[in-house]
Amino acid sequence: MVQRGSKVRILRPESYWFQDVGTVASVDQSGIKYPVIVRFEKVNYSGINTNNFAEDELVEVEA
Results as ranks from 00 to 15, higher is better:
residue 1 M to N: 12
residue 1 M to P: 11
residue 2 V to A: 05
residue 2 V to Q: 04
residue 2 V to T: 05
residue 2 V to H: 07
residue 2 V to S: 04
residue 3 Q to G: 08
residue 3 Q to Y: 05
residue 3 Q to L: 09
residue 3 Q to F: 06
residue 3 Q to V: 11
residue 3 Q to M: 11
residue 4 R to D: 03
residue 4 R to H: 06
residue 4 R to L: 12
residue 4 R to T: 13
residue 5 G to V: 03
residue 5 G to F: 03
residue 5 G to H: 03
residue 6 S to G: 04
residue 7 K to R: 13
residue 7 K to T: 08
residue 7 K to A: 05
residue 8 V to G: 02
residue 8 V to T: 01
residue 8 V to R: 02
residue 8 V to S: 00
residue 9 R to K: 10
residue 9 R to I: 08
residue 10 I to A: 01
residue 10 I to W: 04
residue 11 L to Q: 05
residue 12 R to D: 06
residue 12 R to C: 07
residue 12 R to S: 06
residue 12 R to P: 06
residue 13 P to E: 12
residue 13 P to A: 13
residue 13 P to M: 12
residue 13 P to N: 06
residue 13 P to W: 10
residue 13 P to I: 13
residue 14 E to L: 09
residue 14 E to C: 13
residue 14 E to K: 08
residue 14 E to I: 06
residue 15 S to M: 04
residue 16 Y to N: 00
residue 16 Y to V: 04
residue 17 W to L: 02
residue 17 W to E: 00
residue 18 F to W: 06
residue 18 F to L: 02
residue 18 F to Y: 13
residue 18 F to A: 03
residue 18 F to K: 00
residue 19 Q to Y: 08
residue 19 Q to N: 14
residue 20 D to R: 08
residue 20 D to L: 12
residue 21 V to R: 00
residue 21 V to D: 01
residue 22 G to Y: 07
residue 22 G to F: 07
residue 22 G to E: 03
residue 22 G to L: 09
residue 22 G to I: 06
residue 23 T to V: 13
residue 23 T to Q: 05
residue 23 T to G: 02
residue 23 T to M: 08
residue 23 T to C: 12
residue 24 V to I: 05
residue 24 V to D: 01
residue 24 V to R: 00
residue 24 V to S: 00
residue 24 V to T: 03
residue 24 V to L: 02
residue 25 A to F: 11
residue 25 A to L: 15
residue 25 A to P: 00
residue 25 A to C: 15
residue 26 S to E: 13
residue 27 V to C: 07
residue 27 V to T: 05
residue 27 V to R: 05
residue 28 D to G: 07
residue 28 D to T: 06
residue 28 D to C: 12
residue 29 Q to M: 13
residue 29 Q to T: 14
residue 29 Q to P: 12
residue 29 Q to H: 13
residue 29 Q to W: 11
residue 30 S to F: 06
residue 30 S to M: 06
residue 31 G to K: 09
residue 31 G to D: 12
residue 31 G to Q: 11
residue 31 G to N: 15
residue 32 I to E: 09
residue 33 K to L: 11
residue 33 K to N: 08
residue 33 K to R: 13
residue 34 Y to W: 09
residue 34 Y to T: 04
residue 34 Y to G: 03
residue 35 P to W: 13
residue 35 P to R: 11
residue 35 P to F: 13
residue 36 V to Y: 14
residue 36 V to M: 04
residue 36 V to R: 01
residue 37 I to S: 13
residue 37 I to V: 14
residue 37 I to L: 15
residue 37 I to F: 12
residue 38 V to G: 00
residue 38 V to M: 00
residue 38 V to R: 01
residue 38 V to F: 03
residue 38 V to N: 00
residue 39 R to T: 12
residue 39 R to V: 14
residue 39 R to W: 13
residue 40 F to V: 00
residue 40 F to P: 00
residue 40 F to D: 00
residue 40 F to H: 00
residue 41 E to L: 09
residue 41 E to V: 09
residue 42 K to P: 01
residue 42 K to N: 10
residue 42 K to D: 07
residue 42 K to S: 12
residue 43 V to S: 14
residue 43 V to A: 14
residue 44 N to Q: 06
residue 44 N to P: 07
residue 45 Y to W: 13
residue 45 Y to D: 15
residue 46 S to W: 15
residue 46 S to H: 14
residue 47 G to D: 04
residue 48 I to H: 14
residue 48 I to P: 04
residue 49 N to K: 05
residue 49 N to W: 08
residue 49 N to R: 08
residue 49 N to D: 10
residue 50 T to L: 09
residue 50 T to E: 13
residue 50 T to Q: 12
residue 50 T to N: 04
residue 50 T to A: 07
residue 50 T to G: 02
residue 51 N to T: 10
residue 51 N to W: 15
residue 51 N to R: 04
residue 52 N to Y: 09
residue 53 F to V: 00
residue 53 F to Q: 00
residue 53 F to Y: 06
residue 53 F to E: 01
residue 53 F to K: 04
residue 54 A to S: 10
residue 54 A to D: 08
residue 54 A to Q: 06
residue 54 A to V: 03
residue 54 A to Y: 05
residue 54 A to K: 08
residue 55 E to P: 14
residue 55 E to G: 06
residue 55 E to H: 15
residue 56 D to G: 06
residue 56 D to N: 12
residue 56 D to A: 08
residue 56 D to M: 06
residue 57 E to L: 02
residue 57 E to V: 02
residue 57 E to I: 02
residue 58 L to W: 02
residue 58 L to M: 06
residue 58 L to H: 01
residue 59 V to M: 13
residue 59 V to P: 01
residue 60 E to T: 13
residue 60 E to S: 10
residue 60 E to H: 09
residue 61 V to K: 03
residue 61 V to N: 03
residue 61 V to W: 06
residue 61 V to L: 09
residue 62 E to A: 11
residue 62 E to P: 12
residue 63 A to H: 12
residue 63 A to F: 12
residue 63 A to R: 12
residue 63 A to D: 13
